[in-house]
Design a protein around this nucleic acid. Structure first.
Lengths: 343, 343
DNA sequence: AATAGTTCCGAAATCGGTTTCGTTAAATCA
DNA sequence: TGATTTAACGAAACCGATTTCGGAACTATT
């Protein structure tokens, strides 16, 4: 009943091998039989089984997608989702489909990501997280499976990573604030377990320093994650414990949005009292009032590059296994810049 | 080198069948051998191959995810992404992983969705779209593969669907507008190829009628899709061709946001000049100013129900194969309601 | 005409599991 | 004690492909 390669072979009066060769474009088949078999495949609506193919070739044409960590990075995260969207499109062109691992407990193959990868025999995988390397990721990183990390530094022989220049972006922010005349600069980060947040903080402090300004620790506060509440609570904490800086860089747009909400509730206005610059440039930036100035991460490019890095890794033609992409300052209304400044 | 079931069998001094039975929890194995084999599996880090299992059992533990149609529904669509997030979580609990089909051309298995499903032998699939049934979806719908549609009516024997009560939500909107004293009501829809947009429009017109108000076609305009530009252009069109209604229901929040932008650019204010209610209740609603009132779709519930409907379909215990979920009016600032009205 | 090269195709092993059915040994029963 | 049941396990067929290697038929070469 189920039509398989054997059915096709019999109908065409050829061997199974011949049909297989036709499917895989072998050259030692005459145009005539090729045409005949193709015709039959079309008529019967035959579709080869991927599991059988995977079993035989050990290549599944599948890319595993891992949302890692406790930071709740998932489909609802605007930044990663856009990266993933671009990644998916590009991988599609390259002939791959995406397999999203459920990370729930009670799953058939529970346990580490490496096991999941082996279970499904993915050809490669992408790890999306804003967090540090944890044991189960590190295990995968050390394995022979091609992996590329977005916003996480994978150093294995068959790994690579891609992220924005997190250090440099902070310089751009500080420079902007400085030119606007702001001297008291603060930063709201994600959790300290986030490498990229820490990188941004480091770059920020160094930049402040390089402009000859003092770094006030009281204006540096970290939240739980990259979501709105973290920004909201950070502002409340600053207010509770003393004073507010004149300008703030937030480690994500959502954090910035939360910060603006808290500020507003306390009667402060943005940017008149406190200027704010977010990070990522998610859609929502345009909708807030004031519209949120931000550091734009080129999500489309990150996704595309992630795909091609991974592709090279899979075909072991990898030369450069990691790349940083240039971030861009996008000035809207929240950072205290007047239009005239830019002319 | 690669360790497989045979390796385990040899190491444990039992047969392959025995190991397989242990993996699959057969009862005719003594606790003793069970323990021994488990120990060895753990030590060697053995992971069974899913392709081999799929080949033998014809069950892949994979659910296909299809973003269908030209409406550009993908990861970046805030509504569907939240539904999917909840769906993924629930499917994970049930032991399934999600396979996202690339819909690019030039793909190994090009052609229809049904072919993709058969190729990967997915146990079921979910179709996410705001659009009408197109041929390649309909083919899948008629197949024996369990499918559930989100915002699309699948009627096959092995299909089901789930959506908000699109007809009823419009009544809630009209009722609200009516109670606020608005009499000139407009609607901005997506393309006419969208079933849900049409349903909302129908419900809207019927509701207007039931309140004894006239329906003015000039205030009903459809856009290209569910994104912002559609709303922006719809307002421009209304302004070009005459007049503006006093209140507008938009088929999506993004459309509403686009409409507000156009309104603002023309010097109109929301809700003083034109009241607006969106649909979906995406995150961005909270960030706009005025904050966008909207019809909330219970995305979490939709995702969970989609998962359990699909699960039932797969295990052919399906009784109810489709369900509509109750939408809820969320009042913020854009619909002209004063807080006192609600007290 | 004998030899060497091509072209085209198939037999069969293999990938890593599942599942049926039979077998053996021990336990239970009459 | 002989017969029957039960517990525990294995042999082997099977799932649907891929791929190597060899062979037949045909063409080209000298």
């Amino acid at each position: 009943m189920p039509i398989n390669i054997k059915t096709i072979a019999e109908m065409a009066g050829v061997s199974v091998s011949t049909v297989s060769k036709i499917i895989n474009n072998y050259s030692d088949i005459s145009e005539e039989t090729k045409a005949k078999v193709h015709e039959i495949m079309k008529q019967t609506g035959y579709v080869p089984s991927n599991s059988a193919k995977t079993l035989a070739t050990k290549k599944s044409s599948l890319i595993g997608v891992i949302f890692a960590g406790k930071l709740n990075i998932d489909f609802t995260h605007p930044f990663f989702v856009e990266v993933l969207n671009s990644f998916k499109k590009q991988m599609g062109f390259l002939g791959y489909d995406l397999l999203f691992f459920s990370n729930e407990k009670s799953h058939a193959v529970d346990g580490d990501y490496l096991a999941r990868c082996r279970h499904f025999q993915v050809d490669g995988c992408i790890i999306v997280t804003g967090q540090q390397v944890e044991p189960s990721i590190s295990e995968l990183d050390r394995s022979e499976i091609p992996c590329i990390g977005v916003d996480i530094e994978l150093k294995g022989k068959s790994s690579g990573y891609i992220m924005s220049d997190n250090y440099k972006m902070s310089y751009k922010v500080v420079e902007h604030f400085y030119l606007q005349g702001f001297r008291e600069l603060g930063y709201i980060g994600s959790t300290q377990e986030s490498d990229i947040s820490n990188l941004r903080e480091k770059g920020y402090k160094d930049a402040i320093d390089s402009f000859g300004l003092p770094v006030s620790e009281k204006w540096f506060v970290n939240g739980e994650n990259f979501f709105e509440e973290s920004g909201y609570e950070a502002i409340n904490k600053m207010i509770d414990t003393g004073s507010l800086p004149r300008a703030i860089f937030a480690a994500s747009d959502l954090i910035a949005i939360g910060a603006m909400r808290a500020l507003k509730e306390h009667g402060f206005s943005v940017p008149e009292d406190v200027a704010i610059i977010g990070c990522d440039d998610i859609e929502a930036c345009k909708y807030t009032s004031p519209a949120l100035s931000t550091i734009r991460q080129n999500k489309d490019k990150i996704g595309r590059l992630a795909a091609s890095l991974l592709y090279d890794l899979i075909n072991s033609q990898s030369v450069t296994s990691n790349v940083v992409v240039e971030p861009e300052l996008v000035i809207r209304e929240s950072c205290g810049s007047k239009l005239s400044d830019r002319l």
